[in-house]
């Protein structure tokens, strides 16, 4: 059985590295495969070949990846588009889950403290002046905020912040920020802060969510 198999697909070529084979075997088979194709210019239709390397249920280490990349690099006709597996590490899976879930957070974030989260956050605590809550996702805020809220960290402008922002010091989404002046936002728990098409931080009402962020609106069941 070949440990490295080339398959044509609609968008190019998959290079499948068999999970049951050892890395040495894969490297050896891959070398002879590339060698053969290299000497036979008619074997492939395009002059430049981009490969999707698929490792089945095996996760390559950084070192193993670079061995593969080096080998392919010896044949200028080929280049690696991506290396992908069917599986992920538990760490990555936890990260993914963190990003996709809504997290409940109820604590006091004091002056000088910064709480960094992943994914959407339902905040039930208190943020004192000088305290900061930031997350990669949206923030739904039911607590008292006298500090700083940041959604879409570091650069996702599609995220939003919902809740009463009238007492907040600053509101940030991705890289946009606003220093909240008195009377700038309504004293209402139905306020939504979002980044508009012109990349400007803006404020709207919960009732306008469908217009502001249709994607989120659809995800949470609105029609």
């Amino acid at each position: 059985m070949q440990a490295a198999v080339l398959r044509g697909t609609q968008n190019g070529y998959d290079l499948v590295l068999k999970q049951s084979a050892s890395l040495d075997q894969i490297l050896a088979d891959l070398r002879s495969l590339l060698e053969n194709l290299n000497v036979d210019p008619t074997a492939m239709e395009t002059p430049k070949v981009s490969l999707d390397v698929l490792t089945e249920d095996r996760i390559l280490t950084a070192d193993e990846k670079s061995q593969i990349e080096q080998l392919v690099g010896n044949y200028p006709r080929f280049e690696i588009h991506k290396i992908a597996a069917n599986v992920m590490t538990i760490d990555d899976a936890i990260q993914l889950r963190e990003r996709e879930n809504v997290h409940l957070l109820s604590k006091v974030i004091r002056n000088g403290q910064e709480v960094a989260m992943q994914g959407d956050v339902l905040f039930l605590g208190t943020i004192h002046e000088g305290g900061k809550l930031r997350t990669t996702g949206n923030i739904f805020c039911m607590g008292d905020v006298s500090g700083i809220l940041q959604a879409g960290y570091p650069d996702d402008e599609s995220k939003l912040i919902m809740g009463n922002l009238v007492t907040a010091q600053q509101v940030r989404i991705a890289e946009q920020f606003d220093i909240i002046e008195p009377d700038q936002v309504a004293d209402s728990s139905q306020t939504i802060a979002y980044v508009n098409d012109l990349h400007v931080l803006s404020y709207g009402k919960l009732s306008a969510l469908k217009k502001i962020n249709p994607k989120l609106y659809n995800r949470i069941g609105g029609i």
Binding site: R110, G112, Q113, G130
Partner: peptide
């Protein structure tokens, strides 16, 4: 009071 808040935070950590 702000500085006290900071210190309480550190003591909680």
């Amino acid at each position: 009071v702000r500085d006290a808040d900071r210190v309480v935070g550190l003591l909680e950590q």
